[in-house]
């Protein structure tokens, strides 16, 4: 596991490659944004439970049994799935094409 790349200098070329820098910048920013959204929503949910549980127990409309908590809870599950889907879509498309271009440029 100690071999880092095919040879010891190749990674320096890649590091200087413009496409690589673009890839890293785009992907890191995207991953960070989505992480902050997910973490923020979940932490907000936990804090709501801890400090204001009544909010989650409010019915959606007067006379209804379904509460905001149910909607928010199920919504969070769907958001989690949607955000991972969003990431895969862009990473397996745009980012992988960029990655392929990096590898192509390095070979030349």
């Amino acid at each position: 596991m100690s071999r880092l790349t095919h040879n010891d200098t190749q990674w320096r070329d890649i590091q200087r490659n413009a496409s690589f820098q673009e890839l890293v910048q785009k992907r890191s920013r995207f991953a960070m944004t989505l992480s902050i959204i997910m973490l923020g929503l979940y932490m907000a949910f936990i804090l709501l439970i801890a400090f204001a549980p009544g909010v989650l127990g409010t019915p959606l409309a007067s006379g209804m049994t379904t509460t905001w908590g149910i909607l928010i809870g199920l919504g969070l599950i769907l958001v989690a799935i949607a955000l991972t889907g969003l990431y895969v879509r862009r990473a397996n498309g745009e980012f992988d094409r960029l990655n392929a271009r990096v590898l192509e440029e390095i070979k030349r």
């Binding site: 997910m38 439970i49 809870g73 969070l76 989690a80 955000l83 991972t84 990431y87 895969v88 990473a91």
Partner: peptide
């Protein structure tokens, strides 16, 4: 409702694994 809170915690770890860990882990490990 408490059951929903419980399952939520288990689920939200997954997006974080996706964004922060999955591909780097795969690329570096054996």
């Amino acid at each position: 409702y408490d059951g929903l809170i419980y399952s939520m915690g288990f689920l939200v770890g997954w997006p974080m694994i996706m964004f922060l860990i999955a591909e780097r882990l795969r690329n570096l490990g054996r």
